[in-house]
Each structure stands twice: as structure tokens, then as C-alpha cells.
């Protein structure tokens, strides 16, 4: 079994505010998706959600606000799954709720430490 990280990206839209009910419904979608992966015993790490606050540090003491200076899409979180192949990992990614709101999932293989 190999590990793959699924990286979630979507447009940063600070103006969009959700009602508590909408938040609840979104959370439920994510929980169901992750619960489904865990039920297959393929969730290696439930990863983390990333907030909107960010800075980018560049050479020459240049610090810019926001992680999204040059990319429209922002990384909003990640999880790690175990799968036989990157195709299987991509299959898992197809159920990700971020796809319902115009986001996308980047699937990457993790290189084990001893390689």
C-alpha cells in the first residue's frame, strides 16, 4: 500500500458567508466523505484544514500578505489516503465535496522517508 496526499484547492472568496445551517451541511458532506474513506480503512491521516490567513516569504526579506498572491486557487486543506495506485487514490478523490463548489483536488504520491 502506498500513501497519497489529496490537496484541496478552491477560489478564495472571503465575501461568501455561510449560515450555521449551511456550515452544518458542508461539514456533514466532508464527514461523510472522510468517514467513507475511513470505512475502507484507507484514511492514513485526517490531515488539516487551512485558514485564510497567510503570508508568503520570499528571498530578500520580502513578505507579502496572503498565500494567494500569484495563484487564484488557494490550498484549503489536505488528507492522506492509502491506495494501491494513484488511479485508486484519484478514484477516492472523485467524491471530495470541494468539487461541488468549483474546487479541485490534487493527488500526489508521498515518497517514503527511506527512499
Amino acid at each position: 500500500m502506498n500513501e497519497f496526499v489529496l490537496i484541496f484547492r478552491n477560489d478564495f472568496q472571503p465575501e461568501v458567508k455561510f449560515s450555521p445551517d449551511e456550515m452544518q451541511a458542508i461539514m456533514q458532506q466532508w464527514q461523510n466523505w472522510m468517514g467513507g474513506i475511513a470505512a475502507q480503512n484507507k484514511l492514513a491521516s485526517s490531515g488539516n484544514r487551512l485558514g485564510g490567513d497567510g503570508k508568503t516569504v520570499k528571498p530578500g526579506n520580502i513578505v507579502t500578505n496572503g498565500p494567494y498572491a500569484e495563484i487564484k486557487e488557494m490550498i484549503s486543506g489536505f488528507i492522506i489516503v492509502t491506495a494501491d495506485s494513484i488511479e485508486e487514490a484519484s478514484e477516492i478523490a472523485k467524491g471530495c465535496p470541494i468539487l461541488n463548489v468549483g474546487g479541485n483536488v490534487e493527488v500526489r504520491n508521498i515518497i517514503p522517508m527511506n527512499n
Binding site: 456533514q28 464527514q31 472522510m34 468517514g35 475511513a38 470505512a39 484514511l43 485526517s46
Partner: peptide, 8 residues
Amino acid sequence: QLYNKLLI
């Protein structure tokens, strides 16, 4: 939801 959390 509780089973989802338990499995995670």
C-alpha cells in the same frame, strides 16, 4: 456522524 468520527 458519530460512526464517521469513530472510524477516523
